[in-house]
Amino acid sequence: MLELAIGIILGGCALGAGCAMIAGIGPGIGEGNAVAKACEAIGRQPESKGAVTSTMLMGCAIAETTGLYALVIAILLIFVAPNMLVNILLRAIA
């Protein structure tokens, strides 16, 4: 019975981490759009390459934030949560 409970905890954490990383889709699309538009802008006005590139990097970094929130949650779920939850379970049994 204990093995089943620990298995459910580990499986739930892994599933949760996988689901959390669905958030990676958004930044992917957003950054792709940003880079595409920046390429267009540089093609139209090659002399403004420096300004466009630095603005694009800034925008990409900000668009990336939501993805990184998801990444942090996934990392917590994989490396931190299982230990903690199993300890809580064992303490509850004992």
Partner: peptide, 8 residues
């Protein structure tokens, strides 16, 4: 989170 997440 941005800085830490990227490096981590």
């Amino acid at each position: 989170f941005r800085h830490y997440g990227n490096v981590l």
